[in-house]
Amino acid sequence: MAELFVLDKASILERLGGDEEIFTMMVDMFVQDVDSNCAALAAALASGDPAALHREAHTVKGLLATFSDESGAAEAGAVEQLARDGLVEGQAEAVAGLQQRLREIAAVLSAG
């Protein structure tokens, strides 16, 4: 991932209608779910099943977009597209990049 994640709380809050309560709830859930999301990505990659990888990459794309991480969402979107075309092999590096991104965001969110 080229760029570091920068938390753009203002844009996220704008999407949530300025609702801090929902924002906090989502941050908590993201941090809570980060391990299982990384594990699901790894499992999909290991299974060699393009449909599984397509689905998990799609989920991660949505998660990253929710936290206004446009470049991260774009990377996830690229994995999703390739998996949709049936490609799993050769995506290990990109998947590792997504896992790293998820943990990076979790760390930033946890730091508050």
């Binding site: 609702d19 309560e21 929902i22 709830m25 989502m26 779910d33 949505g62 929710t66």
Partner: peptide, 16 residues
């Protein structure tokens, strides 16, 4: 929605 975070978000928005 199969994503818990989306379910939670949408539920909160629906309640609003």
């Amino acid at each position: 929605d199969d994503s818990d975070i989306n379910l939670t978000l949408i539920k909160a928005l629906v309640l609003k």
